[in-house]
Nucleic acid binder design. Structure first.
Length: 261
DNA sequence: ATGCCGGGCGAAGCCCGA
């Protein structure tokens, strides 16, 4: 069994002890991290190596930043999402690794937030999703197990947000965004959590403010998308609420899946 | 509740997140 997890850590330096503890307890084979908020030179590589992981990343000062941690060597590394050479935001890293003898391609994705919806940020989000769709289509041609995991900043359905009416016009829930997300799924990708769980009201993010965690006012916006070759191996997918319950947590909590290899 | 937390930056208060 191979376990692949995704977690927006909201600063890898501020969250280092949490992340190391989680790696030891949850023991994923591959961990996809987002919002590192640091450049590559400041990434705490040694601490992760001590925990048994190698890492590749796309870093950026203060904002964004994505990494892949793996117990097995990472190859064929891509640190940019194709489709716009002028886009310098560190939101995509992809690599291949061998898990129990099977090559699996993984990507760590930090999709733009897009708020406010009447700004350039929203059109950037939609363009970014279009580029992701194009790249996801290309990856299908390889006919290999692919896991596109990360903070998608997309609430797929009403049952994935605590108050759908209130979120209707938010960039995470706007119909254009949900439609674009479905277009990616319709290429042939499976959203791991929803494939195995029909129940609603299970979240991966809770705002720091207004007691959102205590009231369970959350959003499900962190997703693991699987190519058909990966989806055929899907054995489990769960949300691990433990890291969000700790002191000084990230506002996101990890989501993981297991592939039967 | 478009800023009530929280992080980065940089050394006070602003930008940003979702």
């Amino acid at each position: 069994m191979a376990k692949i997890a995704t977690w927006n850590v909201n600063s890898v330096k501020a969250r280092l002890s949490h992340v190391v503890d989680w790696l030891k307890e949850a023991a994923p084979d591959v961990a996809l991290l987002q919002e590192l908020k640091c450049i590559e030179e400041n990434f705490p590589l040694m601490e992760f190596e001590d925990a048994g992981y190698s890492a590749v990343l796309a870093g950026q000062k203060a904002y964004n930043g994505v990494a892949i941690l793996s117990r097995t060597p990472l190859e064929d590394i891509t640190t940019r999402l194709p489709g716009d050479d002028t886009d310098d935001q560190a939101r995509y890293v992809e690599a291949v690794t061998k898990l129990n003898g099977r090559m699996v391609r993984v990507a760590s994705i930090y999709l733009p937030n897009g708020n406010p919806v009447d700004s350039e940020k929203f059109s950037y989000k939609l363009r970014w999703m279009g580029r992701l769709k194009n790249h996801a289509r290309e990856l299908l041609r390889l006919e290999e197990p692919v896991v596109l995991g990360g903070d998608y900043n997309v609430i797929p359905e009403d049952g994935d947000v605590w108050d759908p009416a209130r979120w209707r016009d938010d960039a995470l829930f706007r119909m254009e965004v949900r439609r674009k997300f479905r277009e990616i799924l319709n290429l042939g990708y499976t959203e791991s959590y929803r494939a195995l769980h029909s129940e609603i009201g299970h979240y991966s993010f809770w705002d720091y403010q207004a007691g959102a965690w205590q009231k369970d006012n959350g959003l499900r916006i962190d997703h693991l998308l699987l190519s058909p070759q990966a989806a055929d191996l899907l054995a489990a997918c769960e949300i691990d609420r433990t890291p969000r319950s700790k002191t000084k947590p990230s506002d996101h909590t990890p989501v993981w899946c297991e592939l039967a290899i």
